[in-house]
């Protein structure tokens, strides 16, 4: 649905994105990176607000810049907080629904429906100027969805939402992604992304650092073996047992907690296949199994700093 081929975007001497090549298909993909990584430039290129300086950006196999055919099928929730403060939420969404080409007869019904999806029906007739930050975020999401787009681009959509709101919106994005839509969500907050998807595009300083499933990405990083911590009463015994396997690089007992052993492996798949068998055969009682490297933070740290 979306493809970038060696796309770069410069603002004079400042890099927006640099030599990015990727394709994004249906499903929920997170665009991850610290502030200034080029996430917004990426999204502005895809939503046809910017042209690449070099390379090519295609959406539905068309160049998106000012392309009304693309805009008909794409929904965009910008990061900016600015809204038309003297409009009501309903009139704002209705105006953009009209501009998106939704027929008058169906418009009111569709606006009601989408306001319901973002839980804003109760406040739809109030002025946007009086909205809380979370409500503004919800109304911005509503306008991105009102024309039922196939691609939904959401720039930091969870900013300003309370935990309940985050959960609701995350569930909404996941639901939209299961309807064979392409949902691209940017974020610089890792735990947010972890709740949503394992499919990530990792960016830093304008470059695409990694793309794909968090787990697969992690597995590719040979320089940083995968670590797994196991808590069991027979930690020393388990460590010895595991070191018999050739793919286990090391097994370290935790100095603070003698019941915890942390192994390093370059073949996590093989390890996860073998571990249940070992545990059952030797009767280990595993209290906790944790893989700090499956945590996005770790992937992010390795890739960006590695």
């Amino acid at each position: 649905m979306i493809s970038l081929t060696r796309a770069s975007r410069w603002y004079g001497q400042v890099i927006g994105i640099n030599d990015v090549t990727c394709t994004i298909q249906a499903g929920l993909t997170a665009l991850l990176g610290p502030n200034g990584a080029g996430k917004s430039t990426f999204m502005k290129l895809v939503t046809g607000q910017l042209r690449p300086t070099t390379g090519d950006v295609r959406v539905f196999n068309q160049r998106p810049f000012a392309n009304t055919h693309v805009f008909r099928r794409i929904g965009y929730c910008p990061e900016i907080e600015a809204l038309y403060d003297d409009m009501t939420g309903r009139s704002f969404v209705t105006m953009l629904a009209a501009m998106a080409g939704i027929a008058r007869a169906k418009r009111a019904e569709r606006v009601d429906e989408v306001l319901g999806m973002v839980s804003m029906s109760h406040a739809a007739d109030r002025r946007i100027g009086g909205y809380s930050k979370g409500m503004r975020q919800r109304i911005k999401i509503a306008q991105a969805l009102v024309h039922d787009p196939e691609i939904i681009i959401l720039d930091e959509p969870l900013n300003g939402l309370d935990p309940v709101g985050r959960k609701e919106m995350t569930a909404l994005f996941l639901r939209l992604a299961t309807e064979n839509r392409c949902v691209l969500v940017s974020s610089h907050i890792l735990y947010e992304v972890e709740q949503m998807t394992r499919q990530i595009i990792l960016m830093d300083r304008g470059r695409l650092r990694a793309m794909g499933d968090v787990y697969q990405i992690r597995a590719l990083i040979d320089a940083h073996p995968h670590r797994v911590s196991i808590t069991t009463s027979r930690a020393r015994d388990l460590a010895r047992r595991l070191l018999e396997f050739p793919y286990i690089l090391s097994a370290t007992l935790d100095s603070a907690d003698a019941r915890q052993v942390t192994i390093e492996t370059r073949s996590p798949d093989a390890f996860y296949d073998d571990l249940p068998r070992i545990v059952l055969a030797d009767g280990y009682r595993v209290e906790e199994l944790d893989s700090p490297d499956n945590n996005l933070e770790a992937v992010f740290r390795y890739l960006v700093k590695g």
């Binding site: 939503t47 046809g48 607000q49 000012a66 009304t68 055919h69 805009f71 008909r72 794409i74 965009y76 910008p78 900016i80 600015a82 809204l83 038309y84 953009l96 501009m99 998106a100 080409g101 306008q143």
Partner: peptide
């Protein structure tokens, strides 16, 4: 300046 133009410029209406 207020950046609200983005809502209009990403709609299927010729600029």
């Amino acid at each position: 300046e207020q950046r609200t133009m983005v809502y209009l410029l990403t709609r299927p209406v010729p600029r």
